[in-house]
Design a protein around this nucleic acid. Structure first.
Lengths: 136, 136
DNA sequence: GCAGTGCTTGACGTTGACGTCAACGTAAGG
DNA sequence: CCTTACGTTGACGTCAACGTCAAGCACTGC
């Protein structure tokens, strides 16, 4: 495998709490709450929080997890999984087992989702039939 | 369309609160809570609650909605939609509009879900690569 | 007839996920 | 130098979704 060339230390872009909060359409209180629970750990310049791309990525994962109905504690274990050490074989196997659990969970949700959409479609068909009878 | 023959008033099966709670693997307190919020309205024989097939169907919808991460109040508006009066044309059109909103919501969740599953797959691939390097 | 067992209604407690102050630090502009 | 804007840390409030008693009725079996 070819070795990658590293960019010459471009001054990485950072964000303030207000900026990422507005960008993701949450309040700064929400962002701080996630930090209290250990879901994001922004850099500190003195006392001020500095957010990097990594933090933005994590915030995106958190909010998607929320839209899917996962509790924050569970979300933490999930995104921590992506950053978990995978050096030793046993660690890797643990991570792979966790992945399987996660997938099973997500696939259950997918089944629920497909069922809900199917029912919704059938219901719409019935309504449209009723509507056409009105017109005739 | 042919008229349907109605079954000769078979003694419809009913359930007690304990029975449906166990069947759906929730506590009776949960079932009562859903009733307090108006999500199910079991028959009353004296003071005792009697659950019919209709209530079981609704409970199933509620729990699926929960697995998909919907709040109970929203779930109520959804399942009420299925029982909403659709006699007048305006009512039908309202219901159809609601259906569209619901579908948009569900499809957003589906996108989130697919994205999460795709990322999980890619992550598993990386882990399996690491693992194979261990073995070599 | 009385003890269980199951069902009932309150009423209060708890947990998760933030909202909402209050009180203060700090860097920039007028 | 003083205001203004944005940042910070507590601490407490709130709302949803139940859990957890307590206390009582109603039928069943012995």
């Amino acid at each position: 495998m070819a070795t990658r060339r590293v960019a010459p230390a471009a001054p990485e872009q950072t964000w303030t709490i207000r900026e990422i909060a507005e960008e993701f359409d949450v309040t700064h209180r929400t962002v701080r709450h996630y930090e209290e629970l250990g879901l994001i750990t922004p850099e500190r310049r003195g006392t001020t929080r500095i957010y990097h791309r990594r933090d933005r990525t994590r915030l995106g994962l958190i909010l998607r997890g929320k839209r899917l109905g996962f509790p924050l504690e569970e979300i933490r274990t999930i995104i921590d999984l992506y950053d978990a050490p995978r050096g030793r074989r046993s660690q890797l196997e643990y991570v792979l087992a966790q992945i399987d659990e996660r997938r099973a969970d997500l696939e259950q949700r997918r089944r629920d989702l497909e069922a809900a959409l199917t029912e919704l479609d059938r219901f719409e068909d019935r309504c449209r039939e009723d509507l056409s009878r009105h017109s005739s």
